[in-house]
Simulated scan of single mutants.
Amino acid sequence: MSERSARNKYVKIRTTSDERDVWQALADEEGVSLADLIRKRLNDSALKSPKSKSVQRVVLEADPKVIRELSRIGSNMNQIARAVNAAGLQPEDVITVLGFLSDVAADLTVIREEVLTQAQAHDLSSQGVDFVSR
């Protein structure tokens, strides 16, 4: 069976007139049909795997005590949020709670920066790993 007779499936796409004209001009320049041009371009190995920056996930071991403490902080913050929502606080009380939560958020930011600093100390940049701060 020849290569052309084995092709019995269709791929339909919508293009603008300008796109189709450009593609047809390219096909004419190469002396092939539009279908052959598209097939050739899509089957080209350079197009099969475009160069993109891959993301590598790195898991660093953490001190279990730190993990437990962070978990407690998160639980406490959830309890505070539930209590604030349920209590129907006066505006001045809400301001007090927001001040407290702001302090907790600042403390968590400090902890996060310390963890990033320690992670960078492992110097995984040679393996393509970047540590960034949000």
Rank of each mutant, 00 (worst) to 15 (best):
D36S: 15
D18F: 12
D44P: 04
R14P: 05
Q79T: 09
K40A: 12
V59H: 05
V32H: 05
S71N: 11
D63V: 03
R68W: 13
D36P: 06
V55L: 12
R72G: 08
D21M: 03
W23V: 04
A81F: 08
E30R: 15
W23A: 01
I38C: 08
T15K: 02
T16N: 07
Q56D: 14
K40H: 09
V55E: 05
L37E: 06
L42G: 11
E29L: 15
N78M: 01
S49W: 11
S17F: 09
Q56W: 11
W23F: 09
S49R: 12
D28P: 04
D36T: 15
N43P: 04
S75P: 04
T16H: 03
S17T: 14
L47V: 00
R39F: 00
V55Q: 09
R41Q: 08
I67H: 07
A35K: 08
S17V: 15
R82A: 10
G31F: 05
V55S: 09
K12I: 15
Q79V: 05
Q56R: 14
S33A: 12
V11Y: 08
D63S: 11
T16Y: 04
D44S: 11
M77Q: 07
L37F: 11
K65V: 13
K40F: 09
R39H: 07
G74S: 01
V22A: 12
V22E: 11
V55C: 07
E19A: 11
D18H: 13
R39T: 05
L60V: 07
D63C: 07
R39E: 06
N76Q: 08
N76M: 10
S45R: 06
E61L: 10
M77C: 13
L47A: 00
K65D: 12
L47W: 01
V59Q: 02
L60R: 05
I67G: 03
I73P: 03
L70T: 03
T15W: 04
G31D: 05
A35T: 14
D28N: 14
V22Q: 10
R72S: 10
V22C: 08
I73T: 04
S45N: 07
Q56T: 14
Q79S: 12
V32I: 14
V22T: 11
I73D: 00
V11S: 10
S49C: 11
